[in-house]
Structure formats: structure tokens, C-alpha cells
Amino acid sequence: MLNIRYEKTTTPKELPTRDNPLKFGTIFTDHMFVMDYEVGKGWHDARIIPYQPISLDPSAMVFHYGQEMFEGLKAYKAEDGRTLLFRPEKNIERANNTNKRICIPEIPEEDFLQAIKEVVKTDEAWIPTKPGTSLYIRPFVIATDPFLGVRPSDTYKFLIILSPVGAYYPEGLNPVKIWIEDEYVRAVKGGIGEAKTGANYVASLKSQVKAHDEGYSQVLWLDGVHRKYIEEVGAMNIFFKIDGKIVTPVLNGSILPGVTRDSVIRLCKAWGLPVEERKIDITEIKEAYEKGTLEEVFGSGTAAVISPVGQLRWEDTIMQVKDGGIGEYSQKLYDTITGIQLGKVKDTLGWTVEV
């Protein structure tokens, strides 16, 4: 168990008002969690301190070689007053898998969960209660050695910051438009595509800008070898309902194993829907669209939960899905998952953890 040192802020910020719309990732709470690592000493000096800038040497290795991990999960305020986390053990597991892949020391799972709970408890008043809002939790680790040379760092900082948020996409639950990228690639098997690290996201920016310029919310990536197998969207995993079946790309080493993705698969199976995790050729999606068997498309992720897709563009083909509206299972999955997260739907799967 961590021995956490506390330093409360003496200048608390003004809490956002219920009527003030929350733009995702722009407001931060009063406190943050910090813990340090040093070879020979391990993880130490756990503390919750006022939210503040961090001081790093200009030669800190994170700036030059990109050794950093980050995660994302949320806290919710239930109607009965409880504060709930949604499947935090899955985020912690994925964080440590990323740590292993990029040579960052693993963080003991019980310490990781304790740190999340304690910093959320400290700033519990910041959890918004308006429908569609939550407290976003961002744990991350950065390499801090002041050294220019390609090797794992000997020192690290583990931090957790909190941000009250509204909808990730401006559209909210309204269907988004997705651009299918056919020029650039995000990741390849054997690389770091399955890790939650910043390099995967900076690789997507060029395509993201291009898509936004064309009026699209996100980019859907194809595989980096054949340039034809569907992988994931920039900020979420992707699902298709084709002729009554739920189909999603199989995890192959270059796709992030989403926590919400896993939740969607488990719920669909529990409802008796056939679910297939397999390779999906983009031409199969086009053919299903032309035949009228492409019944729904939706993304899943912590930030948006479920995001219906109303339009796909691949090369010169524009595919309008469900007449641009919200599909039956997109809505049902959103209502069920958010209902569990908020304590409105009975959690028969043991997915919520009380703070």
C-alpha cells in the first residue's frame, strides 16, 4: 500500500457551473498525483499536490526519444452519491503492457488503483453531474533522465491529472463522419500500435488535419502492409453491423485493445448477437454498403463511449450509413454502458469500482 503524502492547494479554483458547457480536455482540477522512479530505488515518494507545471531538464529523454505512456479512464457520480470508476483494472493492465513494450518500469496494480482512487477522492467535488459529463482521468509516465542517447531512462515520473469533461466529439451522440485513410499508415504489426503511447497519435496528425479540412471528424486507418484491412479510428475502435452480425477487426498487434471495445463485445454476446473478430477488407464494407447489408457502424472508446458513424468516405466513394442516423445497437450500447457507469443499470458484470 502506498504511503501518500498530501499537500492541499491554498488557492482552489472556481468549479465549473452546471450550465457551463464543458469542452473536452480544457479544464483541470485542483490537485494531481505524482510518484517518482529511480533505478535501485524503485517507485517512491507518492504524493498528491496542487496542480502545477512540472520542471524538466531540456535534455530529459522524453523530449528526444519519446519514452512515455498514457492512459485514459473516467469517474462518474451515481444518482445515489457514489463515485464510480469503470473497469479501471483493464486500464491498469493495458498501462503496464505499454510500460513493458517501451521499457518503462511497471507500476504495481494495487498502487496504481490506490493512486487513482485517492486523487479522485481529493477532487471529488469536480465530478460533473450533467447528463453526458464525467471526470476524465489521465495517468501518464514520462522518462526524465537528462541524457542524449538512445537507451531506456533510469528515472521516471508517474502523474495523474483530472479534467471534468463533456462530449468528446462536438456532435455528441449524433453520428460522425469518418475519412478512411489510403495514403498514410498509423502502425504495423511488431511496432507499438497496440501500446498507448504518444508516438501512435502524432503519426495520425497529418491525416487528421486532412480529414478535418474535408469536413470529417476522424480518420479510419487501414493496415500498414496491404493497405486494405481495417484497423481502428484515431480515438476509438470500430464496429460494423453487417447482415445481422457485429464485426470488428481482430487484435493483431497494431490495434489498441480498447476497454470499451471489450465491453461492447461482451455485451453483444450476452444479448445473443453474433460477434466476429476478424480481418475486414475495406472492399467488403463497400460491397455490404452497395448491397444494403451495412446496417450500422459505430466506434467505441473511453472518451466518446459509443460514437455512431453516419458516413464513411473511402477514395471517391461516400457511404451514407443508416441514412446518417443513430442505429439501434449504437443507442442500446450507449445507454447500457453509460447506465452501468452512472449506477442506473444494474452492474451484473462487476465492471464498476467504488472510490
Results as ranks from 00 to 15, higher is better:
Thr197His: 04
Pro249Ser: 05
Gly244Leu: 09
Phe240Arg: 02
Glu284Ile: 10
Glu214Gly: 15
Val225Tyr: 13
Ile255Ala: 06
Glu284Ala: 08
Ser217Thr: 14
Ile282Leu: 11
Asp182Thr: 14
Ile246Val: 14
Val202Ile: 13
Glu284Arg: 03
Ser263Thr: 06
Met236His: 11
Pro257Gly: 14
Val233Gly: 02
Gly193Gln: 00
Gly193Phe: 00
Gly272His: 13
Gln218Val: 08
Thr283Pro: 14
Asp262Gly: 15
Trp221Ser: 00
Thr197Pro: 00
Val202His: 10
Ser204Cys: 11
Val202Gly: 14
Gln218Tyr: 03
Asn237Glu: 00
Thr197Asp: 01
Val188Cys: 12
Asp182Ala: 12
Ile192Cys: 08
Cys268Pro: 10
Ile242Arg: 01
Tyr201Arg: 01
Gly244Lys: 03
Thr283Arg: 15
Val275Asp: 00
Ala203Asp: 10
His226Phe: 10
Ala211Tyr: 00
Lys245Ala: 14
Thr248Pro: 04
Thr197Cys: 05
Glu232Gly: 00
Ile280Asn: 05
His212Met: 15
Trp271Asp: 06
Trp221Leu: 01
His226Trp: 13
Asp281Ile: 01
Val259Thr: 02
Leu205His: 14
Val219His: 03
Arg261His: 08
Asp213Arg: 13
Gly224Gln: 01
Ala235His: 12
Ala195Arg: 07
Ile230Asp: 01
Ile192His: 07
Cys268Asp: 07
Lys210Tyr: 14
Val209Leu: 12
Ala235Cys: 12
Glu276Gly: 12
Gly215Phe: 04
Val219Met: 06
Trp221His: 08
Lys279Tyr: 15
Lys241Gln: 15
Tyr229Arg: 04
Gly258Arg: 03
Ile192Gly: 08
Leu205Tyr: 13
Gly234Glu: 04
Ser263Gln: 01
Gly244Cys: 10
Ile255Met: 03
Glu214Met: 14
Glu231Ile: 02
Pro274Gln: 11
Gly272Gln: 08
Ala187Trp: 00
Ile255His: 06
Asp262Arg: 15
Tyr216Asp: 09
Arg186Asp: 01
Lys269Asn: 13
Ala270Glu: 06
Leu251Asp: 05
Ala203Val: 09
Ile255Arg: 05
Gln208Phe: 10
Tyr201Trp: 02
Gly253Leu: 07
Gly258His: 01
Gly215Leu: 01
Asp262Cys: 13
Val264Ala: 07
Met236Cys: 12
Val209Met: 12
Gly198Arg: 06
Leu222Ile: 08
